[in-house]
Every structure is written in structure tokens, then in C-alpha cells.
Simulated scan of single mutants.
Amino acid sequence: MIKTGYISKTITDLKPSGIRRFFDLAANMEGVVSLGVGEPDFVTSWSIREAAIASLEEGRTSYTANAGLLELREEISRYMDKEFRVPYHPENQIIVTVGASQALDIALRAIVNPGEEVLVVEPCFVSYAPLVSMAGGVPKTIHTLKENDFKLMPEELEAAITAQTKAIMICSPNNPTGTQLGKEELIHIAEVIKKHDLLVIADEIYAELAYDEEFTSIAAIDGMIDRTILINGFSKGFAMTGWRLGFVCAPKEISEAMLKIHQYTMMCASTIAQYAALEALKNGMPDVEEMRRSYLRRRNYIVKSFNEIGLECHNPGGAFYAFPSIAKTGLTSQQFAEQLLLEERVAVVPGDVFGDSGEGHIRCSYASSLEQLQEAIKRIERFLIKKK
């Protein structure tokens, strides 16, 4: 037994990820249909895998530059400008990271001083508030509302800002709700951000998976590129979760600060994964579009089905998550998810793990085959009938 005080108080006070508990439960059960995993069910495209194999065969196994292969950063620069109209210089404004998660970490550590507030828009991915705390900051939540499809309203942002506020974290399309902020909505949010001289950490990892309207980066809004730290990667759109490769784009001064942290903690991202990502950007877009169309069909099915069986569900504009309300059952999110798993062998994630404003909902990933989604809906409907 180690002595009390050996573990950092900051880490001691952090709660474990609420997602993992349900994954661990489901892993020990047979016949489970899982709507819980937040990753594509597609295998990484063959041309991308082949590029990684070629890099090994050719002996390209040493470190790259700390910021990543220049050739890859140049390709990222072209990609971001062409697809999203956000120009970044490959020499000093782009860093290749070990997934988008590491990009979030170094972004926060580069800008946050002890005690400064970072606004976290809930429901949100489980790591946001803990990462703020580990950077020495104070996470302050903004609760979005179901009646607004969980979209951040400018007045909600205005009301949350204090003299200690340094930045805001925004994820669009959102995990867990799938909500996407449109261009006009981002313009109004940007006005508040500029008024109060805030920075934005924009998690745009699902940018390639937008369905009903063209994706707009907040960095593309007038006056925002110089105050935005833009995070993206290859996990979701390119089905490369296990490759652990992301990137972060930011103004030169912020990028240089992030690079210091990256140098000392990571050296560089995987060389092999970087060559794979280079191929993804050069030739992988047809496969991305095929996956996007498949997710769109699945989204249309699962949202329609949830509403038909009595679980009210807004239409998510992007990503691959539905976020139906289970409030009418009288169960908490945790109770619903546990009982559904034990009684019907369907794994979902309780909404409250994504923040208090997620209570009364469950996150359901539709990155599963249509057959699995149909089976899950059949079991959930049966579960609901039993609970009446």
C-alpha cells in the first residue's frame, strides 16, 4: 500500500471515464449488440494500409521532424484550404499529433494559466473537462438544451463568460449529440467570442461526416482564424482510429508553444502512420465519401426508428451518433443503459457521462451495420414495452 499523498491531487480528483464501464460490462457478455463504440465499422482503405506497408519495406522507420513529415504537413495545408477554406502554413502552423486527443491536451497546456477558466459546451466528449483540469485550468460548463437540438446559443455563451475566461471548447459535429453548427450560427457565436477576446479550441474531428449542409469551420468565419486552435485527424473520416494520428492548426505563436510540449512529451507521431495519412489525403477521399453516404443511410434509419418506437430523437447533422431522449421511461440514463444491457443485450452509453445536460438521454453509435441497427431497435422496442 503506497503512502497517502504520492498521487497527484488533481489526478485523484478526476473521475474515470464513464464510457469504459459499459464497454467492460458488455465485453463479458455474449450476444451483445453494441451501439456504444465511437469508431467506424469500416476497415482502413487498402491503399492507406499499402502505403504503411511500403514505408516499412523501404525502411522509413526513424523519427520525423517533431512537427511531423513536412510533406504530410504540406498536404494537410492543401487539404484544409481546399475543403474548408482555412489556410495554414505547413512550416509553422501545423503539428502532426498522436491522435486528436493529444492535440487537445497540448492545446490546453499551451494556453491555460493556473486558475483561468475554459468554457466547456455540454453534452461533450468525456475528456474535455479533465484535460482542462490537468492543464491547471478551471472547466466551466455551458449546458445546451434539447429544445435547441443541443446547439450553443450566443446568449448562453455570453452569460457564461467572466473576467477569468480564457477560451471555449467547441465540437461540431458534436460527440455525443451529432449536432452540427451551421455557418450563420457560428457567425453569431464568433461575434461573442471576438467581443470578449477569447480563444477557441475547435474539435472538428467529424468534419468529413456532415450530412444536411456543408461543414463550416469556425476558423473560416471572418476574424476567427487568428484566435482558433483547430483540431482534426484521421480517426473518424478516414477510419483510422487505431493508427492514432491527428493534427492541430493554429496561429504561429500558439503553434510554437504547443510544439515545445509535443517535443518534450512525444517527440513525434508514428512515422509509419504519417506515411499512411499522406496516402489518405492524396487518394482517400472517394472512400470517405462512400462511408459518409453509408452513415447517412444509417442515420436516417435509426432516427426514424427511435421516433417511431417512442424515443424522441433530433436529427443529428453530422458524426455517427444519435442521442434519443429516454426521459419518458422514468429511468435515469444510467438505469436505462444498465437494464437494457442486462435484459436485452444492447450496449449504449448513458447520456450523463457527457455532462449533466446529457441526463435523460443515451448515446447510440450508428457506425454499425444496418442489420445490427435493426436488431438493436427490435430489442430496444421490446425493452420499452416491458417498462410500460
Rank of each mutant, 00 (worst) to 15 (best):
C171P: 04
A167W: 06
T165M: 10
P154R: 05
T165A: 10
A159P: 07
D197V: 03
I161Y: 12
P139H: 05
G137E: 11
T179A: 08
F125A: 03
F215W: 14
G137L: 13
A129I: 02
T97D: 01
A167Q: 03
E208R: 13
I189Q: 08
E213N: 12
Y211L: 13
K151W: 12
G115F: 09
K140E: 01
P130K: 07
F215L: 02
H188F: 05
A107Y: 09
I94C: 03
T141L: 14
R109W: 03
I218N: 10
E204V: 12
A190T: 10
T141H: 15
E158D: 15
I221R: 07
P176C: 00
M169C: 11
N92I: 08
E158W: 05
R109N: 13
P90G: 11
I218V: 14
V200S: 07
A190M: 08
Y206S: 12
F150M: 00
L108W: 09
P139D: 04
V120H: 00
L186F: 06
A100P: 05
S172C: 09
S101M: 08
S127E: 13
E185A: 12
T141C: 10
M224E: 01
L108Q: 02
A220C: 04
I168Q: 03
H196G: 08
M134L: 15
S133T: 15
L119S: 01
E208P: 04
Q102M: 09
P114V: 08
F215V: 00
H89P: 00
S127V: 13
L119K: 00
K183S: 15
A159E: 15
A202P: 05
P123C: 00
P114Y: 04
D197G: 06
C124L: 01
E184T: 15
I142N: 03
D212K: 04
V121P: 01
H143P: 01
V120S: 04
A100F: 00
D149P: 02
P130N: 09
D222M: 02
S217G: 10
C124F: 00
E158T: 09
E208N: 12
C124G: 00
I201F: 14
N174S: 14
P90S: 11
E147Y: 06
L119T: 00
A220H: 13
E204F: 12
E117M: 10
I193N: 09
A163N: 13
A163G: 11
V126K: 02
I221S: 09
P90H: 12
G223T: 07
G178Q: 06
G136R: 07
V98E: 13
G223Q: 07
N174Q: 06
D197Q: 14
V120Y: 01
Q164P: 01
I205W: 11
K194V: 05
P130T: 07
I187P: 03
E158I: 07
L199D: 11
T162P: 12
V112M: 02
E191I: 04
E156R: 05
D212G: 11
T144C: 00
A207V: 03
V98I: 14
D197L: 05
G178C: 07
G137D: 10
N92Y: 01
L104N: 05
E214H: 11
S101V: 09
N175C: 14
E117F: 10
M134Y: 06
V132P: 04
Q93K: 11
A107Q: 04
